[in-house]
Amino acid sequence: MNDLLTGIILAGGKSRRLGRDKALELFNERPLIFSVIDAIRSSVDEIILIVNDSARKKELAFIKNVKIVVDTYSDSGSLGGIYSGLLEAQNSNAIVLACDMPFVSKNIINTMKNRMGSNVDIVIPETDGYKHSTHAIYNKNCLEVIDQQLKQNEYKISKIFSKCKTIIITENEIDEIEPNSKSFFNINNESDLDKANQIFNTMGKIKIKIEFFGTAKLVAKQDFIHLYTKKQVTENELIKLISKAKPDLIGQIIKKDTNELKKSYNLGINGIKNISDKKIFLQKNDSILIFSSQSGG
C-alpha cells in the first residue's frame, strides 16, 4: 500500500449549538483547530482544510502549511466535505477529522493507517455502537459512491459503508491502543468545552498538593490547594501554576513577574528540602510546601 496519507479537516464555519466558530474557539490558549493539526502533522504529508465558502477561506488564511479548499457540494454536510477533500488529496488515502476534536490520538491514527491495506476503502473506529465517520480514513475509491449519494441528496455518511470495503476498529482494539481514549471527543456546546478543559488540565498530569504556611496561609485563606502538573517541572513553572491558581499570592508571597517566590519564602518538596531551579520529578500526591525562609523563633 501507499504509506502516504493526506489529512482532511472539516473546518466549516459557525457552530449552531456552540454559537461560535468551533475551529477558532480558544482551547489551551490557541484556536482549537491547531490541536487537530498538531495531532496529525507527523502522520500525513499534506493537510487540507475544507471550508464552506471563500469568505471562510480568507478567515483561515493565517494558518500556515495547509491547503484550504472550498467545499464543492456546499450545504451537504460532512459527506460533501469528505468528497471535496478526497478529490483534492494528492494521496489515495486520507484521514478525515472534524475540527472540533481536541484530543485526537496519534497512536490511534497510526493504527488506523496501518490497517489501510490495498483492498480497503475505509478504516473507521466504532465505540458504543457509533461509527466515527469524521475520525476515519477514506480511499479515493469512495469518491464515486459518495458522488452518487450526494447527487441523490443523501447526506448520511453511514450509507456508504456497506457500498465500500470498510474495516472497523473495534472498541476493544482501541482500548488496547489507548485505554480511556479521548480521541473521539468533540465539542458541540459550552458544557463540552468545559469538559475538554477539565480533561486537558489533568491529561498526562499528576495531582499534587500545595500547602501554605504563615503569611502565605493567611493570604491564600486556605491551608492547601490541589493542582495538576506535569511530572517534570522547574521551580519557575511550578510558581507560575500556583500563581494562576492563587493570584492573591502574587505580590506578597510570589514576585510580581510570577517567576519565583519572594526572598522571604521557601518552596519545599514533601518537607523542607528545597526545590532547586533544575527540573524536578514530581510524583502523584507529592506536597509542595510554601513557608517562610526565616526560621528563627
Partner: peptide, 16 residues
C-alpha cells in the same frame, strides 16, 4: 529578609 518577623511574628512556626 525580616518579612516573617514583621508581619506575623514567630508564632507561625508551629504550623510548619
Amino acid at each position: 529578609s525580616t518579612e516573617k518577623y514583621r508581619t506575623t511574628g514567630t508564632t507561625i512556626n508551629m504550623s510548619l
